[in-house]
Amino acid sequence: MNNLTYWKNGLKDGIPIALGYFAVSFSFGILAGNYGLSPFQAVFMSATNYTSAGQFAALGLIANSAGYIEMAVAQSIINLRYFLMSCSLSQKIDTDKAFFHRFLLAAGITDEIFAVSVCKKGRLHPFYNYGLMNMAMPGWALGTLAGIVSGSILPERIVSALSIALYAMFIAVIIPPAKGDRILAGIILLSILVSLLFAYIPVINKISLGFKIIILTILIAGGAAFLFPVSGDRDEE
C-alpha cells in the first residue's frame, strides 16, 4: 500500500471520530460561550488543544483568573494520560519513517485517535494517522463553532445520540481482540468493575477522570504485565 491508500483508510476510520467529536465539542462550545469566551477564542482553543477534559477545566480556570502556572500545572495533570498513550504508540511507529513524522503525529494523540490507531495490527503508518487527524480534527473545531454560535443548530436529540459515538468506538476497538483471549477479556472486565467502584465509592469518586485513568492503567496494566507477560511479537501477528 502507498501513502495515499493509508491516508484514505485513515480518513474513512476517522468519520465516526469526527461525528463523536462534533457532539462533544458542541457542548464545549455552548459552555465556552456561557463562560464569556468569544467564538474565535473558543475555536482557537479547540484547534490548538484537542483535549476535552483539559478544555472544560480550562474554562473554569480562565473564569477564575487562575495564574498562568496554575493553568500549566492543571493541564499537565489532566492530560498526563496522553503520556502513557504516547509511550504505547511510540513503539508501534515504523522506525524506518523519517523523524519529523513524530512531531506531526504528536499533535494528534487524543483518546480517540489513539484508540483507533494503537489497535491496528502491525506497524503504524504515519499517513494512516494523518488521515484520521485530517478527518477527525475539523470535527472538533467545527463542533465548537456550531456550539458557541448557536446552541440550537442541532436538535438536542441528535446531540444526545451522537454523544455515544466515541464510547461505541472504544468498545469496537477493545472487544474483538478480547474474543477468545481470556486474559484480555478478564483484564477488560476487571477495568470496568474497578472503574465502576471508583465512580461510586465516597472520597475515591472525587478523583478526577484523568487521574483515575492513570492510576488504574498503571495498577491493572502493570499487574497484568507482571502476571501475564506477553511473549515476543504478539502485536505483529
Binding site: R81, Q91, A115, V173, I187, I188, R234
Partner: peptide, 18 residues
Amino acid sequence: KSFLYYVPYVTLAVMTFP
C-alpha cells in the same frame, strides 16, 4: 512491552464505563 500492550485495553475500558 507487556505493560504497553495492556495499556490501551485498560485505558479505554476505564474511559468507557461507567
